[in-house]
């Protein structure tokens, strides 16, 4: 019974994924007014030739800030998990 429900869920999920992959825009022709603006104005506004770097650190800097937070949290968590037991009990 449990396996049947799980298989049913998996089938529904895959049907949903396939239909959505067929229903998005055709491959190679994305509608992108925002990206066109960024490509045309990135050099004048940020001064960087690399448009990806301009997006990472200027237009969407908050994403990079969140990524920095997550990396810091992961390092803290890994170090905490492998700490010596005596220091944990003190």
């Amino acid at each position: 019974m449990r396996n049947f429900v799980a298989s049913l869920f998996l089938g529904i999920a895959i049907v949903f994924l396939v239909s959505s992959a067929l229903l998005v825009h055709p491959f190679g022709e994305p509608p992108a007014p925002m990206d066109d603006y960024i490509i045309q104005n990135a050099q004048a506004e940020t001064g960087a030739n690399n448009v990806v770097a301009a997006v990472l650190f200027d237009y969407r800097g908050f994403d990079t800030l969140g990524e920095a937070t997550i990396l810091f949290t992961a390092v803290t968590g890994v170090v905490m998990l492998f700490r010596k037991k005596e220091t944990a009990e003190k």
């Binding site: 490509i39 990806v52 997006v55 990472l56 237009y59 969407r60 994403d63 997550i70 990396l71």
Partner: peptide, 19 residues
Amino acid sequence: MVLPVPQALVLTSIVIGVS
């Protein structure tokens, strides 16, 4: 040129994935 914003998002996502 190809779109820059998805590439930037994936770049962030890879580092998050590793950690």
